[in-house]
Simulated assay, not measured.
Amino acid sequence: MALATHRTSEFDRDTAVTRRAPGVYDAHLSAGWTIIQAVNGGYLLALMGRALGDALPHPDPMSVTAHYLTASVPGPAVIRTEVVRTGRTMSTGTATLVQFAEDGSEVERLRVLAAYGDLGALPDDVRTTAKPPAIPPYEHCLGTDSAPGGRPAIPGSTAIAERLALRLDPATAGWAVGAPSGKGEMRAWFGLADGREPDPLSLLLTVDALPPTAFEMGLSGWVPTVELTAHIRRRPAPGPLRVAITTRNLAGGFLEEDAEVWDSEDRLVAQSRQLARAVLQG
């Protein structure tokens, strides 16, 4: 697969923002990153990260927290940013994304608080007990073209699936054939379908791009994100990523998803936790 440059990548085109005035950006939410009727939360996080990266003096997202207030839809949007604080090594900002109702009134979709820094300037010292997830080789994992007879191994593919090079660990893909394990786990190899290499901005998409763990717990339907916090720990090396997501507690119709993202050099490059609402079906 030919590698896409940042200039030709669909991800970069679809997360582009245009500065209209200081702190105000025009954006277009692409229908190519939708799940069911809503725009994917990780794509939205990356879009907000793009605007904040322009507004803040430091280059890399390090901690980004988003509250999803209403479901975003494809079409025009406005992002407003505010610089809260700037320091020597880190800067902090906020951003809101709004769309417009038929009567012209504003509808706020999400609100973000983020800290930016320079990942390339961090010390190399690593002291960790974290280990990369045990995932079978890429060719032994399941993609949308993996099922015999041409039937997709991951049914109900949505627009975003066409833009991802996603290969699920068979041990966490039982839901795709009607046999969920009952465990709140999801693991996969991850990349962008056009071959664009990962970077700190695309990691904001990665942490929220796998099927929800609720599927493997025997539930079906939409699992909208309420709040998502992502920590970007390092600039990832080129090559496919490995993503592991776990849920330990589903109660009251809500669940948490804890994600780890590992690069091709076995380094933990991103972590996230989100609170999501589960549709209790199945």
Rank of each mutant, 00 (worst) to 15 (best):
L113E: 12
Y68F: 12
V83P: 09
D194L: 05
T225P: 09
E82M: 15
L203K: 15
A51E: 13
S91C: 00
C141T: 10
A176T: 07
G191W: 07
A244F: 10
L201S: 11
V261P: 03
Y43H: 14
P148R: 03
V73H: 15
D124T: 04
T206L: 14
P155A: 14
W33M: 00
E108I: 01
D118E: 12
G184Q: 03
A27P: 08
A16G: 14
A130I: 04
A38W: 01
L168V: 03
D103E: 06
A237N: 12
D199L: 04
G49V: 08
G53E: 14
P57S: 10
R7L: 15
D54H: 02
A278R: 05
R80A: 11
G117S: 02
G104H: 10
W33Y: 04
Y25I: 02
W222G: 00
V177D: 00
S146G: 15
A153G: 14
P211D: 05
E10V: 09
L3H: 06
R13D: 02
P211F: 09
R50T: 11
L45T: 12
G49N: 08
F11V: 11
I35E: 03
M62W: 01
V279A: 13
L228P: 12
V207K: 13
T65E: 11
A270P: 08
V207E: 07
G41N: 09
R111K: 12
L29W: 03
G239Y: 15
P74Q: 08
A31T: 03
E256Y: 14
M48Y: 12
D169H: 07
Q271E: 13
A71I: 09
D125Q: 05
L69M: 13
F190G: 10
N249M: 12
R167C: 08
P132F: 13
V78Q: 05
R85W: 06
P238F: 11
R88Y: 00
V107C: 10
L122V: 03
A173H: 06
T92E: 10
A276K: 07
E10S: 08
G104L: 12
G282P: 10
Y43G: 06
R235C: 00
F100H: 15
W222C: 00
S264W: 14
A27S: 09
G218M: 09
Y138A: 02
L255V: 04
D12S: 01
P240S: 12
E102N: 12
G32M: 02
R20M: 04
G120Y: 03
R13H: 05
I79D: 06
D54C: 00
D208V: 11
D208Q: 08
E257R: 15
A153D: 11
R235F: 01
T18H: 13
R267A: 09
T229W: 01
L3S: 11
G87Q: 01
D125W: 03
L119T: 02
L203D: 11
